[in-house]
C-alpha cells in the first residue's frame, strides 16, 4: 500500500466558546487526499471544560498522537508553528459600559493633569513669554495668542502620530499603536505558549 502524505499546519490562534469540542479541522489547515482529510479533520483532540479557564495550548505532538492512534501508517508533514493557542471566550457581564466611561474619564483627567505637570516642569509659561517678546518686542505675561494655537497643536500632533483623524486615516500603514499592540500580543502569546504548555517543561532530576 502506498502511503500518501498529508500536510498539516497548526493555526496560530483559535477563538471558541466554553464547552466546545475541539476537532483537528478547527486547529489546523490540512492538505492531502480528500477522504483522509475528512477523517482526520473530525477527530477530537480536546473538549473545553471549566478547568481550562481562558487559555488552552494544544501542542502539535498531541494532534499527531491523536492521528496516529487511528491511522498509524499515515505520513504527516507538518509546517509552521508547533502549537495553537485556544482562547475561550466567556460571555461578558453587562457592566462594560460603566467601566468604559470610568476608563474614559480616568484617561481624560490623567492626560490633562500630565500635560499641566509637564508645562510646570519645563517652565513652559516663561518660555512662551520669551517667545512672545522675541517675536513682538513687547512683554506679555499671558501670551494667549501663542498658547491657544499651541494647545490645538498638541491635539494635532497626537492625531498625526497615531495616524488617525477619528475614523479616517492618512494612509494604509498601521499606526504605531496598532504595531505596539501587535507586539504586546506576541509577547503575551510567547509567554502563554511557554508557561501553559505542560509538555514544555520536564523535571528530570530524581528526588
Amino acid at each position: 500500500m502506498e502511503v500518501e502524505a498529508v500536510y498539516l499546519r497548526m493555526r496560530h490562534r483559535l477563538l471558541c466558546s466554553p464547552g466546545q469540542t475541539i476537532r483537528i479541522k478547527d486547529l489546523a489547515q490540512l492538505v492531502g487526499p480528500e477522504d483522509v482529510i475528512q477523517e482526520i479533520g473530525h477527530m477530537i483532540v480536546h473538549k473545553i471544560t471549566v478547568q481550562d479557564k481562558t487559555i488552552v495550548i494544544i501542542d502539535l505532538m498531541e494532534v499527531l498522537k491523536t492521528i496516529r492512534k487511528k491511522i498509524p501508517l499515515l505520513d504527516i508533514q507538518t509546517v509552521g508553528t508547533p502549537q495553537t493557542i485556544i482562547e475561550v471566550q466567556y460571555k461578558r457581564p453587562k457592566i462594560t459600559g460603566v467601566y468604559f466611561v470610568i476608563v474614559w474619564i480616568l484617561l481624560f483627567i490623567g492626560a490633562a493633569l500630565a500635560i499641566m505637570n509637564f508645562h510646570e516642569d519645563v517652565s513652559m509659561q516663561q518660555v512662551h513669554q520669551k517667545i512672545y517678546y522675541l517675536v513682538t518686542g513687547r512683554r506679555n505675561d499671558y501670551p494667549l495668542l501663542l498658547q491657544v494655537p499651541y494647545s490645538i497643536g498638541l491635539g494635532l500632533g497626537m492625531v498625526l502620530f497615531f495616524n488617525h483623524i477619528f475614523k479616517k486615516r492618512f494612509n494604509e500603514e498601521p499606526s504605531p499603536l496598532e504595531v505596539e499592540m501587535f507586539n504586546y500580543q506576541q509577547d503575551l502569546d510567547q509567554y502563554v505558549i511557554m508557561n501553559e504548555n505542560k509538555e514544555n517543561e520536564k523535571k528530570a532530576h530524581d528526588d
Binding site: 476608563v103 474614559w104 474619564i105 484617561l107 481624560f108 483627567i109 490623567g110 492626560a111 490633562a112 493633569l113 500630565a114 500635560i115 499641566m116 508645562h119 498658547q147 499651541y150 494647545s151 490645538i152 498638541l154 491635539g155 497626537m158 492625531v159 497615531f162 488617525h164 477619528f166 499603536l177
Partner: peptide
C-alpha cells in the same frame, strides 16, 4: 485615544 487627546488639549 480621543479621551487622551481631548484631555491634553483641554488640560493645556
Amino acid at each position: 485615544l480621543m479621551a487622551i487627546l481631548f484631555g491634553k488639549v483641554i488640560g493645556s
